[in-house]
C-alpha cells in the first residue's frame, strides 16, 4: 500500500504525455477520417530532431520545442495533400486506401530511421532531468521527478491551447464543422482541403514536440514508434473515436495502468494488460468509455 500514492502520481504524470499524443491524433481522425498509423513514427522523428538539435546548439530541449513544432508542422503540411489525394477522387473504398497509405508511410519511416539512426538508444539531456521533488506528508513519501512535472505542464499547456483554438476561433469552428459533416461543412464555406492540411500540420507538430519530451524522460531509438502508436490507439478507442473530451481521462487511465503494472506486476505484461482492457471495452461499449465515439 505504501507504493500506491507513488503509483498514482506516476500514472498522472505519464498520462499527461499521452494526452498530447492522443488529442492531436483524435482531432486528425475527426477531420480527415483516417487513422494515422505513422503517429509513433512522427514521435520518433521528433525525438531524433530534438536529440540532434540539442547536440548542435547546446540549448535545452524545452527551448527547442517551438523549432521542432515549426519544422514538423511544415512537413505535415506538405504530406497531407497526398493523403487527401489518396482518399478522394474516383476511387473505390477511399477509407481503406487512406489506412493502407498511412501504414505504408509508417513502414517507410521506420526503414529510413533504422538506416539513418541505426539501432542505438540515446537520451536527450535537459536541465530538468536532474532534480526531483520529495513530498513527505501523513507518513507517505512520494518523489516527483522535475522533468515529468515539466512534461505534465507542457501537456496541460498544449491541451489548453488546442481547446482555445477549437472552441474560440473561426478556424476551430470550421474544424468542428468538418468533423461533424464533411459535405455540409463544405457547403457552408469551409475549405476542407486546406483545413485538413492545417489540422494535420498541427497534429504532426505536436506529436514531434511530444517526441522530444519523451526523449528527455525516457529514451530515443529508431524502434520506439510502434509502442506509442499502440498507446495512441488505446487512448483514442477508449475515449471513443473522435470524441476529444474523453481523451484526457482515457490517457490518465492508460498512465495508471502502466505505472501500476510497473510497480506491482511484471512490466513485460503491460502490453497484454492494455490489450485486454481494449478488448473488453470494445466488447462491452464499442463507442468508448463514454459512449460518445463515432
Amino acid at each position: 500500500m505504501e507504493l500506491l500514492p507513488q503509483a498514482l502520481i506516476d500514472g498522472i504524470l505519464l498520462g499527461g504525455i499521452y494526452i498530447t499524443i492522443a488529442v492531436a491524433f483524435s482531432l486528425t481522425y475527426g477531420v480527415m477520417h483516417v487513422i494515422d498509423f505513422a503517429v509513433g513514427e512522427w514521435i520518433m522523428f521528433g525525438a531524433f530532431a530534438g536529440y540532434y538539435l540539442n547536440k548542435l546548439t547546446g540549448l535545452d530541449p524545452f527551448i527547442l520545442l517551438p523549432a521542432v513544432f515549426l519544422i514538423f508542422a511544415l512537413v505535415g503540411y506538405l504530406v497531407q495533400p497526398v493523403i487527401h489525394r489518396v482518399m478522394s477522387g474516383n476511387r473505390g473504398n477511399p477509407l481503406l486506401m487512406g489506412l493502407v497509405f498511412t501504414f505504408a508511410l509508417a513502414l517507410m519511416f521506420q526503414g529510413v530511421a533504422l538506416t539513418v539512426f541505426g539501432f542505438y538508444t540515446n537520451s536527450i539531456p535537459s536541465t530538468f532531468s536532474e532534480g526531483s521533488i520529495l513530498i513527505e506528508k501523513l507518513g507517505l513519501s512520494m518523489t516527483i521527478p522535475t522533468i515529468r512535472l515539466a512534461g505534465l505542464c507542457y501537456a496541460l499547456g498544449i491541451t489548453a491551447m488546442l481547446h482555445y483554438l477549437l472552441k474560440k476561433t473561426t478556424f476551430g469552428l470550421g474544424v468542428r464543422a468538418l468533423a461533424q459533416h464533411k459535405d455540409a461543412a463544405g457547403l457552408m464555406g469551409v475549405n476542407g482541403k486546406r483545413t485538413g492540411a492545417y489540422v494535420y500540420a498541427i497534429y504532426v507538430g505536436i506529436s514531434a514536440m511530444t517526441g522530444v519530451l519523451i526523449g528527455c524522460i525516457f529514451s530515443v531509438s529508431a524502434q520506439m514508434g510502434a509502442q506509442y502508436t499502440i498507446f495512441a490507439f488505446f487512448v483514442v478507442v477508449l475515449a471513443g473515436m473522435g470524441y476529444l473530451a474523453g481523451v484526457p481521462w482515457a490517457a490518465l487511465l492508460l498512465g495508471m495502468v502502466q505505472s501500476i503494472f510497473l510497480i506491482y506486476f511484471d512490466p513485460g505484461h503491460t502490453l497484454l494488460a492494455v490489450f485486454a482492457i481494449l478488448y473488453t471495452i470494445l466488447l462491452i461499449s464499442p463507442k468508448g468509455l463514454f459512449g460518445r465515439g463515432v
Binding site: L107, M108, G111
Partner: peptide, 20 residues
C-alpha cells in the same frame, strides 16, 4: 532495412498511382 523502405514505398506508390 532498405527492404522495409522499399516495401513501404511500393505500397504508397501503388495506392497513389495504381489503386486497383
Amino acid at each position: 532495412v532498405l527492404y522495409l523502405i522499399i516495401l513501404g514505398a511500393l505500397i504508397a506508390l501503388s495506392v497513389v498511382f495504381m489503386p486497383n
